[in-house]
Design a binder for these strands. Structure first.
Length: 454
DNA sequence: TCTGGGGTCCTAGGACCC
DNA sequence: TCTGGGGTCCTAGGACCC
């Protein structure tokens, strides 16, 4: 990779399209989950709104109005009940079916503006604007914002820069600065200098709390200082990851746009329980359900799993003797069969289960994933049985896709373990099921939840 | 009573082999 | 019984992200 002189950025920004110079835009939905709720409930506009994590545990999305009354990201619900009452904060359980669908709409809209798009997370996408270097990029970004707002109802912010890290910085600065109109272009060196000087090193993408503390000890607290720091010294402190961040801040692109979503290398399904769980039978049922979810994801990406792990743990916030344990099973021949993996998971669970413990969480991890098309059978494998299994799984997936999740499932998952249509726990549901007391309907994904007009 | 879930990448160190 | 170096592979743990 050839290094570009950081100074050249100034001229790049004004010269006609330089094919080799990448330009990234980061588009992200403001308070995404809250914004999704607002789309279907306009009475939430201008109100403080928060969306909660699983089990209605803590705050994972909040509007500006909620930030203004002092609610922070990650705040446990039970510690902010005063604020909620005092300021009439509107509180919602998370509704991933709705957010996922809104996300897909947003991404489809963004794809109209450039074929080179990386869906980075549920509410963020990197766009390559390299081909638009002749245009006023901030203008173009404002047009993108307008259309996304018009077609999906979601407000966004857009940051533009010659690298992903600078686009991220631009995005955050655009959000913070209310006069920016939600768009900031950091392609030009002078703009970089002034913004980075006011930007905390701790807020740079890839710099977490640990790294920020290390940098502070070295006297680096702003993004500008980080950019101009000795790159070898930073690498010594923060490994190759830190080096890349410094180079990206200098305008040298190290992180490419990744347009194709690679297959997952690991699939995790785990959840905390709505209530304490003590019995092996209950844990087994939970594990069977999580394994079922994991297997669905596994088959969706057409992989087979060779290693399965199960873990159990107590509530780490509770002042009780803590217990954590995990067990790993080598599956031998790769498999994507729900029944096989549930059997393995429950067998593993038995080896780590201890009586008399108040369990809070369990989970299933599938790893060493390889293409299902290339499963290598040993001499002793029953290939006929494997083929039957595969057929059965295909039928189950097809029916569940058509009739709704869990229409068909294996017996080990328990007969009444169903959460209701929108995912909330039914009365009399097993203790392990999740709590979601304030979930909105699935407006966009379920016929019976369609919004009625008039 | 009440504190999420699902991912990735990097490195160090041990096991093992020649 | 003692003497090495060097390579690969695997895993656990750390750090970070949304």
């Amino acid at each position: 990779m050839h290094e570009r002189d950081p100074q050249s950025q100034v001229s790049d920004a004004h010269s006609p399209c330089v094919a080799s110079a990448p330009i990234f835009a980061l588009v992200d939905g403001n308070s995404f989950y809250c914004s999704c709720e607002r789309v279907f409930n306009p009475s939430l506009i201008n109100q403080p709104v928060i969306v909660l994590s699983n089990n209605d545990g803590c705050v994972i999305s909040r509007t500006d109005e909620a930030k203004a009354v002092g609610i922070k990201m990650g705040d446990p619900l039970h510690l902010i009940s005063d604020i909620i009452k005092r300021h009439r904060v509107r509180v919602y359980s998370s509704n991933y079916a709705l957010y996922g669908d809104m996300s897909a709409r947003m991404m489809t809209t963004l794809a109209q503006f450039t074929p080179e798009l990386e869906v980075y997370s549920i509410d963020e996408a990197f766009l390559s604007l390299g081909g638009f270097a002749g245009r006023d990029l901030a203008d173009y970004a404002r047009e993108i914002r307008r259309v996304v707002r018009r077609d999906t109802g979601i407000p966004t912010a857009i940051g533009i820069g010659p690298t992903k890290v600078l686009a991220k910085v631009a995005n955050r600065a655009a959000k913070k600065n209310k006069t920016s109109g939600g768009v900031l272009n950091l392609c030009d060196r002078a703009a970089q200098n002034s913004v980075l000087a006011e930007f905390a090193a701790a807020d740079v993408w890839g710099i977490g709390a640990r790294s920020a503390a290390k940098l502070a000890r070295m006297g680096v607290t702003t993004a500008l200082q980080l950019r101009d720091a000795d790159v070898d010294a930073v690498q010594k402190l923060l490994t190759i990851v830190g080096r890349r961040i410094v180079l990206e801040l200098r305008g040298q692109s190290c992180l490419a746009l990744e347009m194709v979503q690679e297959d997952r290398k690991q699939i995790v399904s785990s959840k905390s329980f709505g209530r304490p769980v003590y019995k092996l039978t209950e844990l087994k049922e939970a594990v069977a359900n999580y394994a079922t979810r994991a297997c669905e994801k596994l088959r969706r990406q057409k992989s087979a799993c060779h290693v399965l792990s199960v873990f159990v743990q107590t509530n780490r916030f509770k002042d009780i003797a803590q217990y954590y344990n995990s067990a790993t099973v080598n599956m031998g021949t790769g498999t994507a069969s729900t029944t096989r993996l549930i059997a393995a998971a429950n067998g593993a669970l038995e080896t780590i289960f201890r009586d008399g413990i108040e369990y809070k969480k369990t989970g299933v991890i599938l790893s060493d994933l390889r293409p299902a098309s290339a499963i290598e059978f040993s001499l002793f494998d029953d290939q006929h049985k494997h083929a039957q299994d595969t057929k059965a799984m295909n039928v189950m997936d097809a029916i569940n896709a058509r009739m709704g999740r869990d229409t068909l499932k294996v017996g080990a998952c328990g007969a009444n373990a169903n959460v209701n249509a929108s995912g909330a726990v039914k009365i009399g549901a097993p203790a392990w099921t999740m709590k979601a007391a304030m979930r909105t309907p699935c407006y966009t994904t379920r016929w019976q939840d369609l919004l009625k007009v008039g």
